[in-house]
Design a protein around this nucleic acid. Sequence first.
DNA 1: GCAGCCATGTTCAATGTTGAACACTGTCGA
DNA 2: TCGACAGTGTTCAACATTGAACATGGCTGC
Lengths: 214, 214
Amino acid sequence: MAATETRLLLLGTVMLFEPVNGYQLRRELLSWQVEDWAHVNPGSIYSGLATLARQGNLARHDLVDGSREVAVYTSTPLGRREFEKLWRAAVETPDILSPLPFHTGMALMPLMSRTAVREALRARLANLDANARAQLAQERPAEAVPPHVLVLADLWMGMGQTEREWLVNLMARVDRGDFGLRGEPADWEAPADDPGWQMANDRQRYLELISRKG
Amino acid sequence: MAATETRLLLLGTVMLFEPVNGYQLRRELLSWQVEDWAHVNPGSIYSGLATLARQGNLARHDLVDGSREVAVYTSTPLGRREFEKLWRAAVETPDILSPLPFHTGMALMPLMSRTAVREALRARLANLDANARAQLAQERPAEAVPPHVLVLADLWMGMGQTEREWLVNLMARVDRGDFGLRGEPADWEAPADDPGWQMANDRQRYLELISRKG
DNA sequence: GCAGCCATGTTCAATGTTGAACACTGTCGA
DNA sequence: TCGACAGTGTTCAACATTGAACATGGCTGC
């Protein structure tokens, strides 16, 4: 399922802003310029939310907000466990040919504790090195592969090396306490025009409506 | 459409081996270890071929081969033009977040002439540099982005730089005549256990069956 | 007070993707 | 000669994705 990163993204973004509706998520994701990468057409968001709700990873609340009906989502304990699993997999598994899961994971890093982040990054580094060793050990002899394909292996090696250096740096920053992670004070505040601020009001109202319904 | 690289891959592989059936393509693609990246489940291949045929990019021939019915595909002039368009786009457009189209393009490089390859790689280099400049010019000020997202930009810059060096190297090799490209003698022969060899027999038989049907 | 327009929130038909499962053929040993 | 099994070639229902289009509300200017 290529949909893994969409699941991760939706689940994580709901956790950041819950309770939220689909339109708010879309607005926020657009402001992240996520359109550039992930599959976040309106349809994907709504059907993704529906799927996650069906699986019990999200709870759907059909609220009447003023004169309007809104479908508002919150995460469930199951969904939060699922998120951690997806997040770990995305961050621990290097994949040169689809960097998206990792980038999605980085964007959602503040939802994880410092310990968890540290462990996941360490695992990524180990896997990166294991991949590099495996590639040098070349299961397939060079003669079995045409030259124009062989040359791609050099690119991969280089990319792996570049990422490794960057990753070591990132791990050092995590170790010395950079970034506001889960259970820590935020290290950063969104600018005034961020849609996240507009959401805050709705969030409060949604919370009341949900508790009123029980 | 994320299906662009599937279209490119199928169209190109058909051109390499035509006339071919879906099973042969699948076998060949598996031997390329394409499963690791592209969406090449059996279903994708057959439905992809059907779509390309419907659009006139491929011709489908329903042959009776011995006691068996086989659906065999050949490329059309329209399809070959479409391939060139897709190939150029894949190779000329750098995209850090989905390297697949480029890798697919590289794998299919022998279908293009040396001039075309040279031009496309030059265009890629120009785009790579343009992207790097755009990123340095930072439309968004650093304060508008949380630190854990900002740090990804460093990774992208590094990746871009690594690819640039590799690309300059590759261009030099193309300039000095490496790789057997379209209209040139092959510079490489597949090992004896490559499914490409098994295909050669069927190819001849398919050709006869097609010409007999007219 | 109403016409026009943007913002909000969602649906849906068309299309693509997944991978298990089907159906058939050949072959090799018991 | 039978049955097991690997190889060949394809289909299909379930599911995901696409993005245009719908429906409604509120604001703004006239």
